[in-house]
Design a protein around this nucleic acid. Structure first.
Lengths: 152, 152
DNA sequence: TCGGCAACGTTAGCGTCACCAACGATTGCG
DNA sequence: CGCAATCGTTGGTGACGCTAACGTTGCCGA
């Protein structure tokens, strides 16, 4: 379902300790944990992002939603299709602007978001299992700063 | 050349602060930095890993090399092809075992490895730019522990 | 000694993720 | 009023790591 992370147990020294290597490897595990965890209940990462955005900001056009959730416009089509099929969102034409679809979170969608959020939270715990609470704080803080820096 | 990292400037709260999100996002930037940096001189990540493995352990079969560098057997074909075309490795049939190719690092290959290693080191610096030396240590330590844990 | 199993290298193809290009339909600005 | 921009949609790209299949070659036990 998800590609496994690279099995590299013990790479060359010149690679093993590179921060970029450590980052991409741990990210691969994180990615798989989340992907598998969501797949178990028939969901995807994109679903979670979209539902979260809708819950926080209310109904909006497909394009706005994509921007809000960091999902490419052309990938929104399938994502909204899937969520609509599952009954978690509704896609209705905007009468005020007939180019647009308005995407609305349904009741079941709100419930699904809770389920996904709960599951995702548990996965974070699995991910950070070997770290003490204070260390988890340190890690997320460092990553947040790195991310902010590179986002410019 | 490389897919850009997700542009998500300001995702929903339910996503923004997840460790798995921070990890995969920073990893995406790291990945792109390295990929772009190597592409500028006509190299790939795989090239660096293969050359590093050869430099450390000497000539070996294509399969062993793949295992050592954490590269799938079926991806080794193209990788070795490219490196051989560039004259950085040599692929010779093993007279002792005619199933095998023995891959050898050439002189120019050693030189190329130095170039790549230097470039990669500079990229690590770009990546960690916003962090103080001590913080960099903390980050790599935490990541190393995460990785060791999930590798089981 | 030889029959079958295992390893090697190779080709082909998949699935995910994020992307780009192009298109018709619609809107809104100058 | 016409032209540019936006919206949703389709189809395709490229990197990455994977699986499946196949012919060749080596090895080991009966």
């Amino acid at each position: 379902m998800e590609p496994s992370p690279p099995v590299a147990g013990d790479l060359p020294e010149l690679v093993r300790d590179l921060p970029s290597w450590l980052l991409t490897q741990t990210a691969a595990y994180a990615h798989r944990l989340v992907g598998d965890g969501l797949a178990e209940i028939g969901a995807r990462r994109y679903h979670y992002r979209v539902l979260a955005a809708l819950a926080e900001d209310g109904p909006m056009s497909q394009a706005d939603l994509g921007r809000r959730a960091g999902i490419h416009l052309s990938d929104m089509v399938a994502t909204v299709n899937e969520l609509a099929e599952q009954g978690h969102v509704e896609r209705t034409p905007d009468p005020k602007d007939r180019r647009r679809n308005v995407i609305t979170l349904t009741g079941p969608g709100q419930h699904q978001l809770q389920i996904l959020a709960h599951r995702v939270a548990r996965i974070q715990d699995d991910l950070l299992a070997p770290l003490a609470p204070a260390e988890r704080e340190v890690l997320t803080d460092l990553l947040r700063r790195l991310l902010a820096y590179h986002r410019d």
